Simulated scan of single mutants.
Amino acid sequence: MTAARRVLLIAACAVLAVVALAAIAPGLLATHDPLQVDVRSTLLPPSAEHLFGTDQSGRDVYSRVVHGTGRSVGIGVLATAIALVAGLAVGSLSGVSPRIVDAGFMRLNDVLMAFPEFLIALVVVAVLGPGPVNVAIAVTLAAIPVYVRLARVQTRTLRLAEHVEAARILGVPRGRAFLRHVVPGVLGTLSVLATIGIGSSILAAAGLSFLGLGPTEPTPEWGLMLAGGRNVLGQAWWISVFPGLAITLTVIAATAVGRVLRASAEGRRV
């Protein structure tokens, strides 16, 4: 790893550490009540009192960004975790199934992968209706096809590996050999992909919230805050810019760490 990329990785990990702290214990970082309305302090620019300024209701934007971390990042992490488990189950099942069943699974998966993840999530929310729970479900369903394909490929590769064949020769039952030697290898590969996928899920969830399909006011959530400031962008740019920066930095940091892990897993120099 080059020195520049090592510095980039350290910076990305530092950003994710701050994001994790804000998600787990927002009270340690926030300076105000994110829901407190003060009509005398509306649309104040960033200052020592209000680090990111205030919004149309006089609420502290910095505190709302901090408290919104748990919802925005939580949806991304939860959706990615569920998509990983579902992809592992379906992909592994497809990889050990008869050819005709495997082909059926993959054709359906190819159709889903032909559409952008955000479009699939948008369709799911349109069917289920708006709301934070439905947004999480939509983002999860949109992310599953990628994990299914990778799990299927890794399953078909590992099931023919020498150590798996050796276990079978030694009398280990087929199912036990699969669970002990194939599934951990597939899960390790999917975990690396999930690190990158968290950023995509956060971005998709924020996009749906921006369109008004997720949480509603006055809930602090990055995508919702971004939408709340678009009508006064020329007058109070900070209302949208700081939540947008939070989304951007989190997605870039998660993607950077994921790419380093993927390169290390593949044995390439990064």
Rank of each mutant, 00 (worst) to 15 (best):
Val7Lys: 03
Leu112Asp: 12
Ala253Cys: 06
Val241Met: 08
Thr140His: 00
Ser57Leu: 13
Asp38Gly: 04
Thr248Ala: 15
Gly95Asp: 15
Ala136Ser: 06
Met225Ile: 01
Leu88Cys: 09
Met1Ile: 00
Leu93Tyr: 14
Ile24Ser: 02
Pro218Cys: 05
Gly74Asp: 09
Leu35Cys: 03
Val139Thr: 09
Gly244Phe: 07
Ser72Glu: 11
Ser63Ile: 05
Val77Arg: 06
Gly214Phe: 02
Val270His: 10
Phe118Tyr: 02
Val251Ile: 09
Val270Tyr: 12
Phe242Arg: 12
Ala3Trp: 01
Leu119Tyr: 03
Gly131Lys: 09
Ser97Trp: 12
Ala30Asn: 05
Arg59Asp: 08
Val153His: 09
Ala265Thr: 09
Gly214Tyr: 03
Val135Glu: 06
Val37Gln: 09
Ile239Glu: 08
Leu141Ala: 09
Ala161Tyr: 04
Gln154Gly: 00
Gly223Pro: 10
Arg40Met: 09
Leu224Cys: 01
Leu249Met: 14
Tyr62Lys: 05
Pro145Leu: 02
Val19Asp: 08
Ala151Phe: 04
Met106Cys: 04
Thr80Ala: 07
Leu51His: 13
Met113Gly: 07
Val153Met: 10
Ala256Leu: 15
Thr69Lys: 05
Phe115Pro: 13
Leu249Glu: 09
Trp238Gly: 12
Ser94Thr: 04
Ala142Trp: 00
Ala23Phe: 05
Ala81Cys: 05
Arg149Asn: 12
Ser57His: 07
Val260Pro: 03
Arg71Gly: 04
Leu9Ala: 13
Leu150Cys: 03
Ala30Gln: 11
Ala263Asp: 15
Ala114Leu: 12
Ala246Pro: 13
Leu190Met: 02
Val270Phe: 14
Ala11Arg: 13
Leu261Glu: 03
Thr255His: 07
Val85Cys: 11
Gly229Glu: 13
Arg64Glu: 14
Glu266Arg: 13
Val101Ser: 04
Val111Thr: 12
Pro184Phe: 06
Leu9Trp: 10
Gly267Glu: 13
Gly95Cys: 12
Val182Gln: 06
Ile247Lys: 10
Leu108Ala: 13
Leu43Gly: 06
Val96Arg: 15
Leu190Ser: 02
Leu160Arg: 13
His163Asn: 07
Thr155Lys: 03
Ala79Ser: 15
Ala136Ile: 03
Pro130Trp: 08
Glu165Pro: 05
Leu150Glu: 05
Val241His: 08
Trp238Tyr: 04
Ala204Trp: 01
Ala121Asn: 12
Leu224Ala: 13
Ile24Gly: 02
Asn134His: 14
Ile120Phe: 05
Leu78Ala: 15
Leu88Arg: 07
Glu49Gly: 11
Val123Arg: 11
Thr31Gln: 14
Arg71Lys: 01
Phe118Leu: 11
Leu43Ile: 09
